[in-house]
Amino acid sequence: MSDRHVFEYALLRVVPRIERGECVNAGVLVYCRPKSYVGARTHLDEARLLALDPTADLPGVRAALRAVERVCAGGDAAGQAAGDDAGRRFRWLIAPRSTIVQPGPVHTGLTADPAAETERLLDLLVR
């Protein structure tokens, strides 16, 4: 039997001006049902974001990204999502929304270590 498990992931994108359709990748969400894992890692390239929109609300974007990480972590910091299982929190976070921080499409893969996969995807797709 393989020690690798199916996981799902989505990028977090910052869309500073929806009418222009430009975005900056700022994080990754990973969900692995067999491991009951949901995690997020974020990295905001502020210079890149400001190149798209010099008036972007950096503190607001940073706060939104931290909120995603808190929901993934669960516990009291997750607010209303604290009692939800990992899958429910992931599904809530990937739901389409029209805010400045938006989830991208969901993709799948195989991993033995979802936490390490989260970091690998952050390095590959965001940093």
Rank of each mutant, 00 (worst) to 15 (best):
M1Y: 00
M1N: 00
H5I: 07
V6P: 02
E8K: 01
Y9E: 06
A10G: 02
L11T: 04
L12V: 07
V14Q: 05
V15M: 13
R17N: 12
E19F: 10
G21I: 14
G21S: 12
N25F: 05
A26P: 12
L29W: 02
L29F: 00
L29I: 05
K35T: 10
Y37M: 11
V38A: 04
V38I: 15
V38G: 00
A40S: 12
H43R: 13
D45W: 03
E46C: 06
T55M: 13
A56M: 04
A56Q: 04
L58Y: 04
P59E: 00
A64L: 14
L65Y: 03
L65N: 02
V68F: 07
V68M: 08
E69L: 10
R70D: 15
C72K: 09
G74N: 10
A77H: 00
G79Q: 10
G79I: 13
A81Q: 11
A82V: 09
R88G: 01
W92D: 15
A95P: 05
R97G: 00
T99C: 00
T99R: 13
Q102L: 06
G104S: 09
G104A: 11
G104F: 04
H107M: 12
G109Q: 05
A115E: 15
A116R: 14
E119N: 08
L121W: 05
L124H: 12
V126N: 11
V126K: 09
R127I: 05
